[in-house]
Each structure stands twice: as structure tokens, then as C-alpha cells.
Design a protein around this nucleic acid. Structure first.
Lengths: 205, 205
DNA sequence: AAAGAGTTTGACCAAACGGTCAGGAACACG
DNA sequence: CGTGTTCCTGACCGTTTGGTCAAACTCTTT
């Protein structure tokens, strides 16, 4: 009988193990900086065994990126569904900051890819992401026109939110090197700062 | 006769050519993603010739990083030398944004290094950079105490400035993919947005 | 328990890589 | 012009890397 996804238990488990190990390594060393042996060791599997589950190193990387693009941009979709404009955006900022704290590997994988010219996801950026951002920019423009939000450029507002929040994941070593925080304590200060930053900027006078 | 730096004209020229070409390649592909052949081709020299001027690939990379660390953090040093606090910080923001526009390669080289754990410059970060940031944080705290600046966490203020400005260099492809700007036109909008962002946040009420 | 599908691995390969080296070419200088 | 120094290159080397493959092992199913 032909199933759509004939995955066995072992396949499910090992595919997950590999992707998780690969996320570790790719996010730390970038695509070219990562070797199959590193992934294999991190996953506790042999190199040929990796290639039994994925046809190539690039396939592993691509699988991670695709999985990522789905979930990473997701919070942006929920902007403007209810509530007060300023609260909506502040909530988005805090949600993004939480993601930097809880999923730094994903953030760094993304950062590595973009910094190096996004060779593998440029289509996604110029297509679906661009459309989504433009759509949300319109929502924000509507709020501004209604006097519910201070006048700001919506696109650059979104960029600034992305950069300030993802900074805590992507530049983690720098932040920690300067603050020497205990654990993730500094994320609370960051949340407080960013909330004030955007509240003051966005609240209409 | 023994000179301190016996550099000939040819040495001067070729060293510069190599470093410039290497900056191109390293900033786009990261350290491990870059090959000596790529640098050689970009520089218009042969691979062994590179290694006549630099003992290794890592030496080229290190030379770039050292040169960079000197100049990259420099604008921060000039904060608090004169003028009104809010203006000082706004000027710093705009200066950093200009640097992202005019020296995106340097910014990306730095970003690549940090994202991947800053293996080669961690000492610089935890030492001199940390000290400088703490020093400027004290200056900002002084301004706040004097009522010349709104109450904000100085460290996170600095982080936010770094991230928002460098974003336009490091995530250039993403920004361009979404905005589809002509040339560097969007930098003016970014400057306007960031100036408003920090002016509203920092001006005491 | 036997068969067949699914899983794992050691041994291997070709290409790419960072780096070496002997010797030749270009240059500076008396 | 000659000679010593600086500059440059083709050929080469050992290692690393992504990937292959036949053979062996294991798990499920009947």
C-alpha cells in the first residue's frame, strides 16, 4: 500500500535527531563552516548514515531553512488582529524578543544565511515575506491615518524591531561579553528597554 | 641597514590589494567559506603570491579584523565630548548608519565573526570594548541623573543603536528584497526614522 | 522462523583545500 | 652592467571534505 509519507518510527526519530544536531552546528559555523562529520558526531550517527536520510549536506541545510521560514516570520502574521495598535506592536516586539531568547539557534541560522547574501532563500524574501511585510505596513499606515499611532515609516519600524530583538540572539557573545549577565537575566532588562522604546515612539501625542 | 618597516612600494600596494580583495570575499562568505583561490582571483594575484605576503589564510583574516576593531568602534569614543546629550546620541546613531552605508563589508565581516561566536576577537570584546561601553554607560547615566535624558538602560540603548544601524549593512539583501529601493535611497528614510525613534525616546518629558 | 524491507557501517574515492618549494623573473642599486 | 634582493609562479603535497557502495546487521511481518 502506498502511503504519502511512508516514514517509520526510526526514520522519524533519526531525521529529527539529525536536524537538531545540524541546527546546532550550522547555526554556529555557517553552511560552509560545517562538516558532515561534525553533524554526524553531534547526532551520534555515522556520516554515511546521515546520507541515508538526507541526500546531501545541502539537503539538510535546506530542510532546516524551509522549516525555519515557516515559523520564524509567523509572529508578524498576527499583528493587527485585535487590540490597541500600540499594544499590538509592543506585544510583537516582546514576542520576537522571547524567540531570540528561546530559539537563538534558529535566529543565528537565519542571520548566517542573510549576511552571506541569502543565496538559498532570496526567493522567499522577495516573494512571500515582502508581500507580508507590505501588507502589515498598510495596516500600520491605517493606524497612523486614524491617529492611533505616531507617524513613523512602517517598513523601517519593522526593520528596527527585527534588528533590536534578533540582536540578542545573533550577537549573543558580544552582549554577554559586555554585560556578563547571569544566565538570561538581561533579557528582562532588554524587554523593559524595548517596550519603553517603542511605546514612547509609537504613542501619538 | 635595518629599518623598522622595510616595506617597499610593491609590498605596500600588494598588501593593500590583498586585504581589499580578502575583505570582499571574507565579508560575503565568512572565514571557512572563503578559499585562498577566491581571494587570489579577486586580487588578481596567484595563490602562492598571496602566501608570499601573508603566512596563512588566517593571517589575512586576522589582519583585517585587527584593522577593523580599531576603526569600527571609534565613533563610540566621541560620545559625550560636547553638545547636548540627545544631540550627541542622535549624531552617533546617524554616524553609525552612515558607516553601514559606506562600509558594509566591514560591518558584515564583523557580523560574521560575532554570529559564529567571535572566536578570534572575544578578548577584544570582553576587554577594551567592554570597558569603553561601560565608560559611556556611565556618561549616559550621568546625563539621566542630571535630567537631560529620559530614563533608559544605557547598555541596552547602545545595543539597540548598534543593531538598528548595522542591520542595514548586515541584512542588506533582506532590506533590499523587501523595499526594492533604487541605490541607497532608503538610507535617508532610515535616518529619518531612527532620528525620530531616538529623539522621542531620549528627550526627557 | 524465514523472508524481505529497512537500517547501519567500514572502506573507499575524487575533488577541493591550505600550504610548500625550487627556481625563474623583475627590480634596485653601486 | 653586474649583482644581490625582492617578487612571482608552476608543480607539487598532505589533509580534509562531501559523497558512494557493497556488505552486513536489525527490525517487522507473516
Amino acid at each position: 500500500m502506498k502511503m504519502e509519507r511512508p516514514k517509520t518510527r526510526i526514520q522519524q526519530k533519526n531525521t529529527r535527531t539529525i536536524l537538531d544536531a545540524a541546527l546546532d552546528v550550522f547555526s554556529q559555523h555557517g553552511f560552509r563552516g560545517t562538516t558532515l562529520d561534525q553533524i554526524a558526531q553531534a547526532a551520534g550517527l555515522s556520516k554515511p548514515n546521515l546520507l541515508y536520510y538526507f541526500p546531501s549536506k545541502e539537503a539538510i541545510h535546506d530542510a532546516l531553512l524551509m522549516e525555519l521560514m515557516d515559523t520564524w516570520v509567523d509572529p508578524l502574521r498576527h499583528i493587527g488582529e485585535d487590540g490597541h495598535p500600540v499594544e499590538e506592536i509592543v506585544a510583537y516586539v516582546l514576542r520576537k524578543l522571547e524567540m531570540s531568547r528561546d530559539y537563538p539557534r534558529e535566529s543565528r541560522l537565519f542571520a548566517n544565511e542573510i549576511v552571506q547574501g541569502a543565496p538559498r532563500i532570496l526567493d522567499q524574501i522577495e516573494g512571500p515575506l515582502r508581500d507580508l511585510v507590505n501588507e502589515k505596513a498598510e495596516v500600520i499606515r491605517g493606524w497612523i491615518a486614524a491617529g492611533e499611532l505616531a507617524e513613523v515609516d512602517p517598513h523601517h519600524l519593522i526593520f528596527s524591531i527585527w534588528s533590536t530583538t534578533q540582536h540578542y540572539a545573533d550577537f549573543d557573545v558580544q552582549v554577554r561579553g559586555i554585560l556578563r549577565p547571569e544566565g538570561d537575566a538581561h533579557f528582562n532588562d532588554a524587554a523593559q528597554f524595548l517596550e519603553a522604546l517603542y511605546r514612547r515612539t509609537l504613542t501619538p501625542r
